[in-house]
Computed example of a mutant assay.
Amino acid sequence: MRNILLSFFLLFGLSATSMAQTIDWGNSGKQKRMKSDTIAKKILGPAKYIATYAYTYVRDAADPNSKRHGETILEIGDRYNRFGDRYRLSFDSIYDEGAQRQITVMETTSQLLPLLRKEKFMENIIWDKKTNKEIIQRTAGLTQLYQYDENCPKLNWQLLEGDTIINGYKCNKAKTSLFGRDYVAWYAPEITMPYGPYKFNGLPGLVLRVTDTQNQFDFLLNGFQKVNGPRPIYLWSEKEIIKTNRKTVRQIYKNYCADPAGALTSTDVIVPEETKATVFAKPYNPMELE
């Protein structure tokens, strides 16, 4: 199964995180039915509010026009916040629903593949506000899921003169630095939540937009609402998750970008030489430079 998924990823260039689910793409898909509870998860608590952000990033630092666009989501709970890719969460929801309803894999695949192609943000970030620690889950180029935890970064925000309107909210300006990049943020004091996309927390109001000063990464709020009904904040809990540290995951991803075919052949997948010849190095432009 893993061989099929890795080959599919290599040939069609789907998002790395999308390959973490064990979907059967085989010829018997029309007859197979997904088992219930196929996505292993640890539920941490309910979300009370959600904020969605358009996510824009420059794939290749040498080419400012190589922009890609995605959607991210911030789930806000009493103790935990979660930030991740909106389409990945939709993927999980549809996959679980299909499993519970015993819909055939082939039928569900028609809904899942478009979500995989839209997935752009590769991290699942849980913030435990009680301990002020973060748990990060992510892939690093292929299908393997990694997990590490660290203290939340302490951001040194500088409040600036200037204001603007975003989605009908009056916003004030601030700036900070994080992992080697400088950022300008706009926050809404009337939304009295000191949260924001990614790891941009600590301002006196919800962050509605944040952009690095080189215009390579941008998060822009396009929706904010109170949650109606159950919406769990959770960690993935597959047995195959490798627990490691941030430095190791960054290096694995850097190696993958330099040699994607080499990363694939380091697994148990056999890649034909003619296929290797068509796989080139990928741009390496991480949001975290340090």
Rank of each mutant, 00 (worst) to 15 (best):
L112E: 03
Y49N: 01
G45I: 08
R88M: 14
Q102D: 02
T52G: 07
Y55I: 04
F91V: 04
Y87S: 07
N81V: 06
T56D: 03
P46G: 10
R59E: 05
A61V: 14
K67W: 03
S110I: 08
L89H: 08
K48E: 08
D96T: 14
D96A: 15
L89Y: 11
Q100V: 13
T104W: 03
A54S: 14
L112C: 07
T108H: 03
G45L: 10
Y80I: 02
R117Y: 09
L116N: 14
L74R: 00
Q100H: 10
D60K: 12
R88W: 07
A62T: 06
E71H: 13
A47R: 00
A62E: 06
Q111R: 11
S93T: 12
A51D: 03
S66L: 11
A54K: 10
Q100L: 14
T104F: 08
F83G: 06
A54N: 10
Y53R: 01
F83M: 07
L115K: 04
L113G: 02
K118M: 07
Y57I: 06
E71N: 10
A47K: 00
V105W: 06
L74Y: 03
Y87I: 01
L112D: 01
N65A: 15
L112A: 08
G77F: 07
Y53D: 00
Y55D: 00
D96W: 04
V58T: 07
R68K: 09
R68T: 03
D63E: 11
Y80T: 04
P114L: 13
E107Q: 14
T72V: 07
Y55S: 04
L116H: 10
H69Q: 04
D78M: 05
Y57E: 01
I50D: 00
R88K: 07
I76F: 11
N81H: 07
E71C: 14
A62C: 10
